[in-house]
Simulated scan of single mutants.
Amino acid sequence: MALSEEEQRLLEQMEAALAAEDPKLVNTLRGTGVRKLHRRRAAIAGVGFFVGLALLVVGLYLMSSGPIGYVGLSLLGFGIMVAAAVTAIYSWQHVGTSAPARGGERARAPQGSATDGSFMDKMEERWRRRRDESGF
């Protein structure tokens, strides 16, 4: 069912008021913000990696046919590749973790993380479970 012009206008006014009052919420609901930023960084880092690879190969080619002065070009290409790889990995890891928790709940830490308790507490709990299951 389509909205009337009056309803459409009221809806646009409400959206504008919400965007003015809480732009962070609007960005979260639209799916923009941190996740989009990390995806963009990962994509740019991927392109940067291939640019660095091209510089490395060109530097090695020029070095084989001429003076040693092209070592810097190869080293620059290698440095760009390393920086791009680190940036891409960091950004890609944060693409999944930047999503807001659903239902107002806090995102739960994966089992086995440091927030679950100490190592000894976990081992004691396992021991109790084994003892209870075996009937001793």
Rank of each mutant, 00 (worst) to 15 (best):
S4P: 00
E5Y: 08
L10Y: 03
E12Q: 04
M14P: 05
E15T: 07
A17R: 04
L18A: 09
A20P: 07
E21N: 14
D22I: 12
K24T: 04
K24L: 04
L25A: 13
L25V: 08
V26L: 03
V26F: 02
V26E: 03
V26R: 01
R30A: 14
L37S: 10
L37H: 06
R39Y: 03
A43H: 07
A43E: 11
I44M: 11
F50M: 15
V51P: 00
V51D: 01
L53S: 06
A54V: 05
A54F: 03
L55A: 01
L56G: 15
V57A: 15
V58H: 02
V58D: 00
L62F: 13
L62W: 06
M63G: 01
M63R: 05
S64T: 13
S64P: 11
P67Y: 05
I68A: 11
Y70H: 08
V71N: 15
V71H: 13
V71D: 15
L73W: 09
L75Y: 02
L76T: 13
V86R: 10
A88E: 08
A88R: 08
W92I: 10
H94L: 15
G96I: 02
T97V: 04
A99W: 11
R102G: 02
G104V: 14
G104A: 12
E105N: 09
R106I: 00
A107N: 09
R108F: 11
A109S: 15
Q111I: 10
Q111L: 10
Q111G: 06
S113C: 05
A114P: 07
D116C: 09
D116G: 11
D116Y: 08
G117R: 10
G117K: 07
F119L: 08
M120R: 07
D121I: 01
R128D: 04
R130A: 06
R130E: 06
R130K: 10
R131Y: 11
R131W: 14
R131N: 12
D132H: 02
G135T: 02
F136R: 06
